[in-house]
Design a protein around this nucleic acid. Sequence first.
DNA 1: GCCAACGTTGGC
DNA 2: GCCAACGTTGGC
Length: 153
Amino acid sequence: MNYWMFKSEPNVFSIDHLQAQGSTVWDGIRNYQARIYLRSAQVGDLVFYYHSNCEITGVAGLCKVIESDVVDPTQFDPASDYFDEKSTPESPRWQTVKVAFVEKFPRIITLEELKRDFAAEELVVVRKGNRLSVMPVSEEAAEKLLRIARAAS
DNA sequence: GCCAACGTTGGC
DNA sequence: GCCAACGTTGGC
């Protein structure tokens, strides 16, 4: 099993939205590095849900991959911001995953804490200038994150 | 293939 | 709103 961290702007789609909705297709990712990661994600992988671009940035909870190699439907929709004219249903360019809500942490594990508790090599999200919205998380870092979340009540 | 210009992300 | 950092585009 692998671990990941997905970024989302909570004013667009937060952990509460995911909880209410149960699951969602993680659409709209148009970055090649992120695509490599999304293509390699497998059913059962755990995903840390990171709130970005908001008042309290940090890890808000957990979700899990329930379907892999999902064709991102927004690439075929001319009305979507994520429309890709070079993509065809026969040969889609963008794959993603479907995730389901697992839990919301008692409180956000803030970016400030992450920077304090993790070295840049341990966790991609604390690296300076990092802009990836889909990142791998090592098993060690995942366990450490979960310990911090469990202690945060 | 280089690289300047431009656009976007995202913390603050 | 500012701006650093980075990805993408396009001229050459």
